[in-house]
Nucleic acid binder design. Structure first.
Length: 568
RNA sequence: UGGGGCGUAGCCAAGCGGUAAGGCAGUGGGUUUUGGUCCCUCGAUCCCAGGUUCGAAUCCUGGCGCCCCAGCCA
């Protein structure tokens, strides 16, 4: 994993060429979210691209809210977005900016367009405008108001602004070409009347600029050099250029489009995400199963892993869908080197070491992270009664199962080699306890005679164990491409959340803070959830460890071990 | 039958006329007090068909397939 992005993509080529040719002396990009929803993985790609490009070229990147449609926008989103961008590891030196900061200038520039005969006030209603726009194969028809005198247009536009007309009564349109093959050039609407209170400008305005008009001009105002957006805006580029060339500015921002991010087993459209939240399919915007940045944060995904993911995904113009497994890989790679190890038993089975004296206990210094010597060690208490993972014991094991089974010797991590001598069951035949003998010579986990055991188990001393709730999350959608065969919600996975309430952990786990991610040895990475309270910890599974044993079992059709799901 | 894009290995993605990078997934093997990590191992002639060229994934022509556009959303 590396934040140094050495791989190339076409936008970086363009940026470097512009710098080399002197077209620009400094790269200025912007990340322009509309505050009408939470940021998600798709935005992470854009954030990484925009801020990353500015960072690596010594330029700057503005956070700019595209708040031109007060009907859908809300301050709640503004705060969430700022928090998420910061969490991704990026900062803006000035601002944040808002398109609404430019409403006055935008209005003046619109008057300028009118004066030059490039825009006019159209009295037609929405329906008429739609009908006269033509179709994909037929040209549109010009509005009867298209050739209105400049003075009249100016007057009407001023009165629109003054609030003299009701919503939808008139619009300001660019005067381009009703017969263009590009629908965006068929006299696109620049301003519409909306008597709606704006989150930031309040009631000062009742006319609001459309995206097409506001975006490019805001770019010009901010001195943006490279305006990066997704593919569906490619058709808007001619309009983007048309406007910026006719408005009184010397700035010449250029728009470049790249393919938006799509991921398997997930849905990334704002509309879908809002439905998931509103209809209660998830616990909220920050549900760990959500592809929102808030959700990923709560899931325990490190921002560095997300940046790495975006880097690996690349930037191109081909529509694509990345496998969710790539994100998992990035998360594991980062956490493997950074997350301290702890022993936690998710599905406890009691083990009594019959040869170990009752009442006695001892402490072992255990390494916190074999990948990071700096992480140090911690003491772990061992005693006669401990908890082991139920799935680590099988009375009648399949071939190559090298965990515990009758007569078999395994290692208890950092402690002793133990051999299963007896199995205790309840009336129902359920195994409730396994009894083992231990080899006192194997203190620490190695036998002095050099004999080897194939299995190493994690365990937790019974008397000092702390209980906790563990939430095992899996893909929200079972289908790789949700909705590809019907309704999206039919593809919601029934197994996306499994709650384990009886897990047992070594005491050191209590020393974590909310949001901290640790590795539960042999199981996966887990992040302490803010729902945690003293004595009632809650951990979310961020991602499971790779599990070649479970994978092999799946392949041979054998039932996998309980509580283990690596999932790709 | 309009306009704009895209098509390189299961999934991403380099390549910009000189004889197919890399990552993920998968395979086989080694190391291992996490069946984790780590280390080796194995895969494509580039949507198709013609053409230009000593030579083409890269240029030309013609097909085929997929995506986007008819919001006073962004």
């Amino acid at each position: 994993m590396s934040d140094v992005d050495d791989r190339n993509h076409f936008i970086r080529d363009i940026v470097r060429a512009d710098l080399a040719s002197g077209r620009v002396t400094q790269v200025v990009t912007r990340f322009p979210p509309e505050p009408n929803g939470y940021l998600h993985l798709g935005h992470a790609k854009s954030i990484t691209l925009n801020f990353g490009l500015a960072q690596e070229t010594g330029g700057r990147c503005n956070l700019r809210f595209d708040d031109t449609n007060p009907e859908k926008e809300d301050v709640e989103y503004i705060e969430a977005i700022e928090r998420d961008v910061r969490w991704m590891g990026y900062a803006w030196s000035e601002g944040p900016f808002f398109a609404s900061d430019y409403f006055d200038r935008l209005y003046d520039w619109a008057r300028h367009l009118v004066e030059a005969g490039h825009a006019y006030v159209d009295d037609q209603d929405a329906e008429t405008i739609r009908e006269t726009r033509g179709t994909l194969t037929e040209p549109g028809r010009e509005s009867p108001w298209r050739n209105r005198p400049v003075a009249e247009n100016l007057d009407l536009f001023a009165r629109m602004k003054a609030g003299e007309f009701p919503d939808g009564a008139r619009v300001l349109r660019a005067r381009i070409d009703m017969a263009s093959g590009n629908m965006n050039l068929r006299d696109p609407i620049l301003y519409r009347i909306r008597h709606v209170r704006h989150p930031r400008t309040g009631d000062r305005w009742c006319i609001y600029p459309t995206y097409d008009y506001a975006h490019g001009q805001s770019d010009a105002i901010e001195g943006i050099t490279h305006s990066l957006c997704t593919l569906e805006f490619a058709d808007h580029r001619p309009l983007y250029d048309w406007l910026v060339e006719r408005v009184p500015t010397r700035a010449r921002p250029r728009q470049y489009e790249f393919a938006r991010l799509a991921i398997t087993h997930a849905v990334l459209s704002k509309r879908r995400l809002i439905e998931l939240v509103r209809e209660g399919h998830v616990a909220g915007w920050d549900d760990p199963r959500m592809p929102t940045l808030a959700g990923q944060r709560r899931r325990g995904v490190p921002p560095a892993a997300l940046r790495d993911f975006c880097r690996r995904v690349g930037v191109a113009r081909a529509d694509s869908r990345v496998e969710a497994g790539l994100l998992d890989h990035c998360i594991r790679e980062y956490l493997n080197r950074h997350a301290p190890r702890r022993m936690v038993v998710l599905d406890p089975l009691k083990m009594v070491i019959t040869t170990y004296p009752e009442g006695r206990s001892e402490t072992f210094e255990t390494v916190n992270n074999p990948e990071d010597p700096q992480a140090g060690t911690r003491p772990v208490t061992f005693e006669r009664e401990i908890w082991i993972e139920r799935g680590d014991f099988m009375e009648d094991p399949p071939k190559k199962f090298f965990r515990l089974s009758p007569g078999r010797e395994v290692r208890l991590r950092s402690a002793y080699l133990v051999t299963c001598e007896e199995v205790i069951r309840d009336e129902g035949g359920e195994v409730v306890e396994v009894r083992c003998s231990h080899d006192p010579e194997s203190r620490g986990g190695d036998a002095p005679d050099g004999r080897r055991v194939k299995g190493t188990l994690h365990w937790v001393a019974a008397s000092t164990a702390i209980g906790l709730e563990v939430r095992l999350y899996d893909h929200l959608f079972a289908a790789a491409v949700p909705g590809s065969e019907g309704d999206v919600f039919d593809d919601l996975s029934p197994d996306s959340l499994q709650i384990l309430s009886g897990a047992k952990a070594e005491p050191a786990l209590a020393d974590t803070k909310d949001g901290e991610t640790v590795q539960f040895e042999r199981q996966g990475y887990f992040c302490r959830d803010p729902d945690s309270r003293p004595g009632a910890l809650v951990f979310n599974r961020t991602v499971g460890l790779r599990d070649s044993w479970a994978q092999a079992q799946r392949k041979t059709g054998t039932t996998g071990t309980a509580g283990r799901k690596a999932e790709s």
